[in-house]
Amino acid sequence: MNIFRLAGDMSHLLSVILLLLKIRTTKSCAGISLKTQELYVVVFLARYLNLFTRYYSFYNTVMKLVFIATSVCIVWYMRFHKVVKQTYNKDLDTFRHYVVIPPCFLLALLVHHEFTVMEVLWTFSLYLEAVAILPQLILLQRTRNIDNLTGNYIFLLGAYRALYLLNWIYRFFMEKAQARWISWISGLVQTALYADFFYYYIKSWKNNEKLKLPA
């Protein structure tokens, strides 16, 4: 474990806790993309299968359970909670997220470290996570005023993978870990998708004005 990875995990954990808090306290999921949340459930289920087959550490196991539980809980709130589901921007959240699942799976069948079920699903989860934020970013451009909690949620979510990139650089040089192109390239693509959001987020934070993405 290194500081970049710990910071990345904490940023990721904080993002999902912030989102859950927003939904629970405001009883609203306005501005949140259900499609992105559902893609994240698929990402976590596909990636954390080794939860049952390989024990790394208490921390590793607990965090995997937390990420699966929170992502499922958020989807439940947005789909079934009688008050919250009314606030879902159904008409704006129109990205057909099921379209990205087959290409990611096909790519995982073609490009992977090893052709086993666990490895292909793990690779699939990396490719899917790289594009999972797309519905949310598109919804943001359509949302009139983005509330602070939502902006902070997306910032932390983007920061987590950016910190993971630093973690991979650290491990490559310090632990002489071998190159893991699949993780690196997926992580780069994922972080790059946040580039313009980061720009507008930091600008709004500097000028102390409302976060606004150009349509």
Binding site: N50, R54, Y56, S57, N60, M63, W122, E175, A177
Partner: peptide, 10 residues
């Protein structure tokens, strides 16, 4: 085939 160390990551 030794497990990639990356698997200890989230």
């Amino acid at each position: 085939y030794q497990e990639l160390p990356v698997k200890d990551e989230l």
